[in-house]
Design a protein around this nucleic acid. Structure first.
Lengths: 344, 344
DNA sequence: TTGTAAGCGTTATCAG
DNA sequence: CTGATAACGCTTACAA
């Protein structure tokens, strides 16, 4: 049933009347081989439906032409839900790899797992891309080890001074600034911010710093009590908003550190009878596919997943080729939709 | 910079004072090895941070413990957009593979590409999962070849008699029936259907057959002129709806063959000044994450991506282990939301 | 331009 | 239970 009797380069060598390394060379389009024999060899290979055995090739050449994508997550999250933002990233990374002729190995990991060595040490992949939201401090510990070992890897995340390894991320501070500025321009003065401010999630902290800078530039006081912790999920956005409402502090707009948070916030507001955008304006962050279809459609800060995926793959490949690569900050952009009303 | 000097089993054999195959056996927890030596070997391996080289292992054992996921698509689609339904599937497949201790290799393919053998023949993977919407007839031609070669693969798609290979899909007919029945129960009598009826997309055809059966059971005439071709995208749903409106035929509800089509339909209706659900009721198909956040939230037929991913992986692994596996039809379910109004 | 020989790091087979 | 020896199918180095 399984006997597919795969032909080897030796078989082809036999049929073509050449040595086996010649076959190998011919199929790799090596210039060292004459056109004549190359064509002959290629013809036979095609007829036999011959494919190079990648394991043999990798073993010998010590390169795999494969990149590993490790999606990690906090242990808390449910079994089958992946943040749509990361799914989009995954799509664009897959495409970018294909464009470079690399395969992509995808894997979920818990932050607690031993991915230190799993991929590159086992020669499964030439390099690694890390993607996920997780406790930053724990994460840094893990990758310092990787860095010391000389592994080739890139992380999607906040770009901070003196991090070990290479990071690529969007300009979170700029994004936060864009969001708050937009609201301020619309006349809002009491703007809440929903997003975790612990050092575990520097992305969120940076977004808040942008929010602060926008206030500062407009000579408006950023009210610390209007900043409420929230993680990434809809659920946590919902809870944070309830907390905010319970505090009885006045506000006319909310800047959310992610679109999922914004979705939860809108739900909570609606349940209290508040309307978006007439009572409260909302800005999100990420621009997930759902954002434009929300009611009202969500004004948000877009992270360009297409550019991001490409940059991640480009960078990790540079590392693999032992070239220098630098951490990179990608621009964000404001997507104006219907969730923000004017107060002017 | 790169000199990580990976230890090999030979190194460990040396240090442990045993033969090299013994090391290999010990690390695989083979019962043939004494507890004593096993522990000694494992300790040293851990200290050196040794990992088995998968290429060497795969080459020798001719198994890769890897499944390939091939996402294919019509050439038409844009560069960076993947149907969210497939992204969800991708997530659940990734998880299911991990649970079985398999790695997942992900790749995009054009239907025109030569994926005939690429993965299994090159020993990149033990089995293949195919996922995508594409021209069914072309696809079948391609996989008959694969089937003849004895490859191990499963396809997500319509389950039809006498297909080559193994198919897993949702019960499209049942789903179509569920959707139309729901509308009929609400008092709708002139229900449109948006979805390609060519033999290129049997899933859509089956959904339409369910729609027809629902009409038949309720003694209502299914009006052929209200069935308009549409592919998978929002764009095509939008265009199909415009066509439907232009035909000036009366209808009070639309059954869409996918949620993206439904999104396009709602947009087109709204532009004409028609309201959902008060003027026109809408049912979708898939239950993509966006569906529940649409305005109004979309009543739709849910395909359980979690169960589907698991079934696909289970099945392909059965094939890999040369066990018999059968094509499988998964149940759909109706998600009642706000996009359907009553006509009673 | 081609051929020869060696070896990548495992696992399989057999003998002890 | 353990060890010697031979593959797995390719690429590299060097010789012709």
């Amino acid at each position: 049933m399984k006997d597919r009797n795969k032909p080897t380069s030796v078989d082809i060598a036999h049929l073509a009347g050449v040595s086996q390394p010649t076959v190998s060379r011919a199929l790799r389009e090596s210039p060292l081989v004459s056109k004549e024999t190359r064509l002959r060899v290629q013809k036979i290979a095609r007829e036999l439906n011959y494919k190079v055995d990648v394991n043999a090739r990798n073993l010998r050449s010590q390169r795999t032409k494969t990149i590993a994508l490790l999606l990690f997550e906090d242990k808390g999250e449910g079994e089958c839900f992946i943040n749509p933002f990361f799914l989009s990233m995954m799509g664009s990374i897959t495409r970018a790899c294909a464009n470079h002729g690399y395969d992509l190995l995808v894997s979920f990991q818990q932050l607690s797992d031993d991915w230190n060595a799993e991929y590159e040490d086992a020669n499964k992949a030439d390099g690694i891309i890390f993607l996920g939201y997780g406790d930053y401090t724990t994460y840094i510990e893990r990758i310092s080890e990787l860095d010391r070992q000389g592994a080739h890897f890139v992380t999607w995340g906040p770009v901070i001074e003196d991090q070990p390894g290479l990071f690529i991320g969007c300009n979170n501070e700029q994004g936060g600034h864009l969001a708050a500025s937009h609201l301020i321009k619309l006349g809002h003065k009491r703007i809440a911010f929903l997003g975790d401010q612990s050092s575990d999630h520097p992305e969120f902290k940076e977004r808040y710093q942008g929010y602060q800078r926008a206030h500062h530039e407009a000579n408006i006081e950023a009210i610390p009590e209007l900043c409420i912790d929230a993680h990434f999920s809809e659920e946590s956005g919902y809870l944070a908003t309830q907390k905010l409402l319970a505090s009885k502090r006045e506000f006319t707009a909310i800047t959310c550190a992610s679109d999922l948070i914004a979705i939860g916030a809108i739900k909570a507001l609606r349940e209290t009878g508040l309307r978006v955008p007439s009572d409260i304006a909302i800005v999100g962050f990420d621009d997930i596919p759902t954002a434009e279809h929300l009611a009202p459609s969500l004004t948000t800060i877009r992270q360009d997943t297409f550019a991001a995926g490409q940059a991640l793959v480009d960078s990790v490949l540079m590392l693999v080729e032992e070239q220098d690569a630098k951490s990179l900050l990608l621009d964000t952009s404001l997507m104006v939709r219907d969730s923000c009303g004017s107060k002017l």
